[in-house]
């Protein structure tokens, strides 16, 4: 996979391999994601995309290879250390805090790197920032502004106190996205954020991703919705049974016969 040396490489993957028993999930995968861009990662189900995300976020140790975040080696770092260095992710199978509200989910992300003795935390503990439903006694007047703004941004304005347990999958995905954004990441890994979204939600998501990239964030996007990918990605990589088989602009990828074969199946 020939890669141009690009000025600002936010995330680099070098020759990463992972085996599960006799199954080779990732086979010497090498690629990079530039800051300020949205990069797509596509491939048939089971191609190893989720495994790659687990390697990047530290939930899976690779058998071989290295992962670099803004030029800094993070292969041996623990998941929470990577997050503190600015790497955030979402999960294909949602990993929400199911017994909390949407806003509380986002708050856990926002506060994760703040120490408990921080004044705003103490204020909350003393009761002024109580997560009691607004309108009741002890209505929070402040502290939730940032969280509300984030929820607004992903298109979930007003759902701060809604239990995530009862949200439809699409909206629950957006809560996960907001939670990931709450840590203020440089690199954002999104595992199928568009699945379960309706057309208008999907459009909002696309705009948001472009906007985030415009702010300098590097976004790596696993997605099946080709509309969305074509619209937001400047570059797309294709993974097929553990190997990178192609990389290029969306137009190149669409025209690539190897990709069509991988995606549409070879049986003619």
């Amino acid at each position: 996979m020939p890669l141009d040396p690009i000025t600002h490489m936010a995330l680099e993957v070098r020759e990463v391999s992972v085996h599960f028993g006799g199954v080779r999930a990732l086979d010497s995968v090498t690629f990079g994601v530039m800051g300020g861009t949205v990069t797509g990662l596509i491939g048939p189900n089971g191609a190893g995309k989720t495994t790659l995300f687990n390697v990047l976020s530290g939930l899976q140790t690779p058998d071989q290879g290295r992962v670099l975040l803004a030029g800094r080696e993070i292969t041996r770092k623990k998941p929470h250390q990577r997050a503190q260095l600015g790497l955030a992710r979402t999960f294909q199978r949602l990993e929400l805090f199911w017994s909390l509200s949407a806003g509380e989910n986002v708050r856990v992300g926002a506060e994760a790197v703040v120490q408990w003795w921080h004044p705003s935390h103490i204020r909350q503990t003393l009761g002024r920032g109580t997560p009691v439903r607004p309108g009741g006694p002890g209505t929070p007047a402040h502290g939730s502004a940032g969280v509300a703004a984030l929820l607004e941004r992903v298109g979930l304005g007003g759902l701060d106190w809604e239990p995530v347990d009862g949200l439809p999958t699409g909206q629950a995905r957006l809560v996960e996205l907001a939670r990931a954004l709450a840590i203020g990441p440089q690199v954002l890994l999104l595992d199928e954020p568009g699945s379960g979204l309706d057309d208008s939600e999907s459009a909002v998501l696309g705009d948001l991703l472009v906007e985030l990239a415009g702010e300098g964030m590097a976004v790596l996007l696993v997605e099946h919705d080709m509309d969305l990918l074509m619209r937001v990605c400047s570059q797309i990589f294709v993974l097929d049974y553990g190997q990178l088989i192609a990389g290029g602009t969306p137009e190149e990828i669409r025209a690539n016969p190897a990709v069509q074969a991988a995606y549409l199946g070879s049986a003619q």
Binding site: M226, R254, Y263, L264
Partner: peptide
Amino acid sequence: AAEHYLAGSGG
């Protein structure tokens, strides 16, 4: 179905 998968209005 192919349209749903690969076509893409913005491409």
